[in-house]
């Protein structure tokens, strides 16, 4: 529990307003700490994700990237921290968020078809018992079409390639018609064509003024794909426009010795500040 007053917190953090109720960004997280055991997985993390922008969450394996998304969504409990979604508490604004978990987190052998998975994105609209209509199915098919998977609607999900599975997950998120999209490693294990297809869809969302946040691994594509970057290694290292914070210094701070200098030199980075 953070016992300090909002005023003291604001003073602590310079230009970032700590009084979370005043922030109407799609997603704002303040002072988030999560621990699975003794050591915290993320510690006192502040983050603000903007509308009409694509943000990459970057950090080494085990840095707490997935944990940050899950804690922001209330999927895992946090020790402390506040979350605001479009200026509202999570419970009020949940319907405006679409979450795409890491592909490896589910059992793809589950007995269900592609279209069925996409229809799961309609749950907040249909609730427990209301009948699924032709309109629902048409909507789901349109979402599949946007990711180029309409021909696979009746396939069992286990019979898809990794890239196709990832596109089905994205399609389920599209079906939710959300304003904030949180994707955990959407490009992990997908081929180049799928990566292109996913980026095109995400760029379309951004153009519509939605906020898109991706946990991302490939440092080489950060400047090409994303507007903003959020660097994390248990603590927040830096956040802001790629042009300002995607610097060698910040990458060193994030990855420590795990990233060779020669590797960093090859990246399309902004000159050190």
């Amino acid at each position: 529990m953070d016992m300090r007053t909002p005023l003291a917190l604001a003073a602590n953090n310079g230009h970032i307003p700590r009084d979370i109720a005043k922030i109407d960004a799609p997603l704002a997280v303040r002072g988030m700490t999560v621990s699975y055991g003794e050591k915290p997985a993320i510690f006192s993390v502040d983050a603000t994700f903007e509308a009409g922008k694509m943000t990459a969450i970057i950090g080494p394996n085990g840095a707490g990237k997935s944990t940050l998304l899950k804690a922001a969504l209330g999927v895992i409990p946090s020790l402390s921290g506040e979350v605001s979604v479009f200026g509202n508490p999570l419970g009020v604004a949940r319907d405006r968020i679409a979450y795409v978990p890491q592909r490896a987190s589910v059992d793809w052998d589950f007995p269900t078809t592609v279209i069925d998975v996409v229809m799961m994105g309609l749950y907040r609209k249909t609730g427990l018992l209301s009948r699924l209509t032709g309109a629902h199915r048409a909507h789901a098919m349109a979402c599949l079409d946007r990711v180029g998977m309409a021909d696979f609607a009746d396939r069992q999900i286990g019979q898809l390639s990794g890239g196709q599975q990832q596109r089905v997950f994205l399609s389920r998120a599209l079906a939710q018609e959300a304003d904030l999209y949180l994707l955990d490693e959407p490009f992990a294990g997908v081929d180049a064509a799928t990566e292109r297809a996913i980026i095109d869809v995400l760029a379309g969302l951004k153009a519509d003024g939605k906020a898109v946040v991706c946990v991302h691994h490939d440092l080489a594509t950060v400047s090409r794909y994303f507007d903003n970057v959020f660097l994390i290694n248990v603590r927040r290292i830096a956040e802001g426009p790629v042009t300002a914070v995607f610097t060698p210094e910040n990458l060193h701070a994030t990855y420590g010795g795990r990233l060779a200098t020669s590797h960093i030199d090859q990246l399309d980075l902004v000159a050190g500040a």
Binding site: G74, R94, D107
Partner: peptide
């Protein structure tokens, strides 16, 4: 069905 298939997604839905 949703929570059996994809527990985190179900939780994110608020189930």
């Amino acid at each position: 069905k949703i929570s059996t298939f994809d527990e985190s997604f179900a939780q994110a839905l608020g189930l």
